[in-house]
Write a protein that binds this DNA or RNA. Structure first.
Lengths: 219, 219
DNA sequence: AATAAAAAGTACCACATGGTAGAAAAATGT
DNA sequence: ACATTTTTCTACCATGTGGTACTTTTTATT
């Protein structure tokens, strides 16, 4: 997968570029930023950048994969029922401290609505995965105690994901008025699900958050 | 407000340009389209366009105002309680037949997250208005019959709006899997609110939908 | 120290961008 | 018919765009 082993010095610049790209894509979306800006921000020429990533499109996908994996990867293996949703809530709760990642996904996901967009497939797949996994979780929970209204687990999952997205959009437009996390907890309670509260002052967990520039400076 | 009365011939081209801009902004967002493309699509040179709208920014705002007013304007005056929500559901239900307007707002609203974006204020204001109006509606409904969970009317409003946005995003990525309208009805039922169903085969109502290119061709 | 490979840079390309200057053409008012 | 205003165009500009060809510098391997 990685053509250049990370021991080679290029590995460092690679991640430096990815961090830079993440930062700027998050700020202005995909179309809103040039590879030259990204390169400058990473202290390199724009063709130096193109040496590591063949094209702007590839770079974006690399950024998305990197940022997504740290969140979703853990999700695939054996988490069940409430655990899954609590884990999701935990991520969302933490996102308050790294608005960049919210911005990135809000902006690029809507751009990616266009079937021609380089990240279209990525997001289509992502939402399918998210809804499937969350759907399984809801199914297990509903099996224990059925929800107060007639709603399929998959529908609940889609609503959960949609709600998170929509609230984060509103949060970015008016950060003071919206608390995505609280709102999602209320939503779950509406469905008869009561997640354990996330810590109100979350401790820094470098192992999990490493590589997120908002928390750990790049250099 | 309008410097040139619509009797003057320029009025026609103005709307022709706006329609063209709407179409292309919806397809590729604000940054994704050049005024030259918009102009060509309206059969005019790009400086001819700039004569009518001083800049690309102004054009976007004009498009947004136009498209929004047809939906929101009616909302300000005397609608109450359930009426408001049913009206919102009705609009959303109809949106299936004019995906352009969904695409426009999904794409541009997330771009507008950036405080520098020309439409930032527009969307900040818009969401405040939406949530306020919907909040009042929920307040009235909750006064009649309190919701099954502890939730403030304003929170319910924000969730309602957020859910609509998030579902429409998912719908654009996978149109077959998502039915925004049904999902919103379920959500309301969860809060103890049962809206009257919208007609399953909505009749064309030219008076309301006039100006939406998906329904009424421009020329 | 020599050699191969990787990384970074300079110069360039064809093309697109939003916007301006000034003139020609068309519509409008009297 | 004339003068005025509105509309539209051609030409141009400075800047930015993603990407290529080719060269130089740095790094790792033997």
């Amino acid at each position: 997968m990685t053509p250049t082993p990370p021991t080679r010095k290029g590995g460092q610049t690679r991640t430096r570029i990815i961090d830079s790209a993440f930062e700027l894509f998050a700020e202005s979306g995909f179309k809103g930023v040039s590879i030259r800006e990204i390169a400058a921000n990473a202290h390199i020429s724009h063709v130096g950048l193109l040496h590591h990533f063949g094209s702007k499109d590839e770079l974006l996908l690399e950024v998305l994969r990197r940022r997504d994996s740290s969140d979703i990867a853990e999700l695939r293996d054996g988490a069940h029922g409430l655990e899954v949703l609590e884990w999701a809530l935990h991520v969302i709760h933490d996102n308050v401290y790294r608005p960049g990642i919210v911005s990135l996904f809000v902006k690029v996901s809507s751009e990616a609505t266009d079937p021609e967009h380089p990240a279209h497939v990525f997001f289509a797949d992502r939402y399918e995965l998210l809804c499937t996994v969350a759907g399984r979780a809801f199914a297990e929970l509903f099996a224990e105690s059925p929800p107060p209204v007639d709603i399929s687990p998959l529908d609940a999952a889609r609503q959960f994901v949609a709600l998170a997205d929509g609230l984060q959009l509103q949060w970015m437009l008016a950060p003071d008025r919206v608390t995505t996390y609280d709102s999602l907890v209320v939503f779950l309670r509406t469905l008869g699900i009561t997640p354990r509260p996330a810590p109100s002052f979350p401790e820094y967990r470098p192992g999990v958050t490493a590589g997120h520039p908002e928390r750990t400076p790049i250099r």
